[in-house]
Design a protein around this nucleic acid. Sequence first.
DNA 1: ACCTGAACACCGTTCAAGT
DNA 2: ACCTGAACACCGTTCAAGT
Lengths: 194, 194
Amino acid sequence: MEAKKKTRKAPASLGREAWIAAACEVLAREGLDGVRVEPLAAKLGVTKGSFYWHFRDRAALLDALLEDWEMRATSSVIVLVDASSDSPAARLTELLRRTTSPVPGVPDVEHAIRAWGTRDPDVMRRLAAIDRRRERYVEDLLVGGGVDRSKAKHRARALYLVVIGEHTRVAHGGRPTSAATWAELLGQMLKTGR
Amino acid sequence: MEAKKKTRKAPASLGREAWIAAACEVLAREGLDGVRVEPLAAKLGVTKGSFYWHFRDRAALLDALLEDWEMRATSSVIVLVDASSDSPAARLTELLRRTTSPVPGVPDVEHAIRAWGTRDPDVMRRLAAIDRRRERYVEDLLVGGGVDRSKAKHRARALYLVVIGEHTRVAHGGRPTSAATWAELLGQMLKTGR
DNA sequence: ACCTGAACACCGTTCAAGT
DNA sequence: ACCTGAACACCGTTCAAGT
């Protein structure tokens, strides 16, 4: 029983993650206003009282939601894409795939969070920082692919806007853009000087 | 009794105005979150049910609050200042007096509304439009006073910022700036080319 | 460590009924 | 025209008590 010490942490935090996961789903489906403690508890089959063991209050849950999304949709993606290949072109392809094709079982909160930012200046600021970070990453990949810096800046912006647009479209019920379109676009973006 | 027809409208809308006035006070003292239907009703000595005769819902009250403030603190002021004198310099003095010395019985919601704008992009947009309108008015007065347009733009901006700063200071408990300081400032601002 | 149950506080909204 | 009273719905938060 002394040996268990090392693996103790997981079960303790499982509850917290379950709340976050459930909140994510609701956030994606109903937006920020749907994320309330009582309905969430009902959804999870527990009492709302239990919520307060994991979080100080509702605001703490919303904060965790944002944190979780930043990690999953930005930090992790960058690490995974970097590890996926050594070729910048291949990395860009992988990045586009990871950020535009929905991951089964993981709700896409991107659009809901942008809407949230519209109503909450703090969230807006945080979003802006994340946007800069992502755009910069794309820019560096383009430069790695042979595009010169000044061109890369514009293309990174364009590429990033396209991805945001795709999320918005899909959130509004549009059909996902085909892989062929993405490939074609990437080809354009990686064209070097001559 | 037929003669009364003309004066009928006032009593009918008195109720509505009372709600707005009460809401204004609370807004100035406690900020947006203090403006709730139930406490407001208690304050007015009526049931909260009666609120819904005058307003569709809480949002409608907040809207009316903004509208009321825009009228009182911008539209009316411009009309009154224009009527106060023919001299641009005198008008500027009057404008500064009207916008910085608190009117007894009328709570200063300016600062609270700016804080509200921080949390609500719609309010923010509306505020920005009002700011432009006010600044433009000051600019035109300066030009009327002999300052050339390009200088006037900068000075109007500066003057307006000073007024906003004054409201913020006073809202935070600072002592009002003296009339002498305002006079001195205005003198500077009205200095012409040579 | 994690959850239940019950209670409390606090509001927004509706509506039939009064005057 | 304006307001009362009562009810309903819906939540956030706390906390002693359980396991």
